[in-house]
Simulated scan of single mutants.
Amino acid sequence: MRVRFSVKGAILVGCLTIILVDLLLIASLSNVQHPSERSTNDNSSRLISKKSPRTPIEIRPIIVLSTFRTGSTLAGEIIQQAEDTFYLYEPLNPLNYVLYQLQNATLHLVNGSVRSVGPYDFPNVSIDILKALINCDFSSLDIETASHGFLFYSRRSIPYISCVNLNKRKTTLFQAVNKCLHIWKESCESSKFRIIKVVRLSLDWMERLLQTFPNLMVVHLVRDPRAIQISRSKLGENIFEDIRKSFTELCTLLSWNIYFETRLNGTYGRIFRLYYEKLALRPLETSMWLYKRLALRYTPKVRAHVHRLTRAGLPDECPTCAGRANSSAHVHSWRGLFNQSQLNDIEEVCGTYLKELGYS
């Protein structure tokens, strides 16, 4: 009997033990996390332990608007030397090139979506691009804009575009842009002054940006149209084939911009005119005035850079570069290049503009 009792007792204890172990195992399994859940929670813990994001800065967008060969490269190069600036050199050029070549095109965006555009969509798409750039929303840009070689003219974009060029050798351009995009975005978001040089839009389109960005300033850069045309001719444009036609087209656009400068200033008051001639003849004085108008800090480093660009005897072999041996020598370089008959035609089609801006 004792032996029989012991066996039964042992069996009973064993069964109870198995049941208890099963219960404990079930309880422990219910607390085990899936690896992805554990990773998410770990990341959350790390995010909580990190410092809270910095307070958003009050951005001050600046558009330098002009026409082709007005001296905007010099003006942009001077402005981008200021502290706390993020400068972009003609970001609308890729879109202009695509539509010029194809008329109708499909833009492939960095975020993976596509956008169909036609020749008449250029102004609207351009405004969307400018808004995205000011907001550092680079994922909504098309791949061409986000990877264009002009980004090397923007010193704070160089690390990003260098990263893209390095990575696209071993992967697709789309993948390279997305891999490096955070570099560009961080550089933009950390800058108070976001400056964009624009030569492909007329001034009336600035109203949409003035409405969207209450701190936006527009620098309207102007130049004598005779000097503009001579500068264009050096790049291969045949302005002498039909003087009246070429100057009529140019001065119509210039007059249009002046009209909207006055009109929009009546509502917004944030557009001011910069004469290229003043910047070229008195670069130190004018650049200091420009910095003051834009609330930028004019430092000895900026002053030295302006001097290097305009007075330091840099070679003049590059017609599209900002630097000049002596910028003042280019102001009246057009004189003597037109005969009297041509000057009479120019006066006839551009006389109102020349007189209003003091060029006559």
Rank of each mutant, 00 (worst) to 15 (best):
S190N: 12
V177K: 11
F213M: 00
G112L: 08
I19A: 15
L274M: 14
L65N: 05
F138Y: 15
V222F: 09
R155W: 15
S287F: 03
Y259I: 04
L296C: 06
E189N: 12
S157D: 05
G14M: 15
R273E: 15
I48P: 00
F5P: 00
L29K: 09
R273P: 00
E237Y: 13
K168E: 13
I59G: 00
Q103P: 00
L279H: 09
S287W: 04
N339D: 15
L203A: 02
V7T: 07
T267L: 15
R69E: 05
R324C: 11
E207S: 05
Y276M: 05
L314Q: 13
T310R: 09
K131R: 15
G351V: 01
G351K: 08
I79E: 07
K185G: 00
M206H: 03
R311T: 08
L25N: 03
G358F: 01
Q101I: 10
A295S: 08
P56G: 04
D84I: 06
G71Q: 03
I63Y: 01
I59D: 00
S66N: 04
M288F: 07
Q175F: 08
R293M: 15
L294C: 05
V3Y: 14
P123V: 06
I11Q: 10
F260E: 03
E144H: 13
S140W: 06
R273W: 01
L284S: 02
S231E: 07
S341E: 15
L250D: 08
L95I: 10
N344W: 13
L130I: 15
F86T: 06
L74V: 02
R273N: 09
W289V: 05
F213Q: 00
R200C: 06
W256F: 11
N215A: 03
L201M: 14
L290Q: 04
L274P: 00
S191W: 01
Q229D: 04
R335F: 09
H305N: 08
T262A: 14
Y291P: 01
N326F: 12
L264Y: 08
G336R: 12
A322I: 11
I346Y: 02
D316G: 04
P283Q: 03
M1Y: 10
F193V: 03
L203T: 01
N43K: 12
W184H: 08
L253C: 01
S191H: 04
G76I: 04
A322N: 05
D121Y: 02
F86I: 11
G236N: 01
G269D: 10
N41Y: 08
Y89H: 15
A227C: 02
L354H: 04
L279D: 05
H307K: 13
G358R: 02
S328M: 08
A176H: 02
S333T: 02
N238A: 10
R244M: 14
H307M: 12
V117C: 10
A132N: 12
G71F: 09
V219R: 01
R226H: 06
R60T: 07
A75N: 03
N124G: 07
T172A: 07
Q342P: 01
S6Q: 11
L23H: 09
V331R: 05
H330G: 02
I19S: 10
P319K: 09
S44T: 06
L20H: 03
G118F: 09
V32G: 02
R69A: 06
N93L: 14
D128N: 06
Q340S: 11
F86Y: 14
T55V: 13
T320S: 11
I26W: 15
K192V: 15
L151C: 11
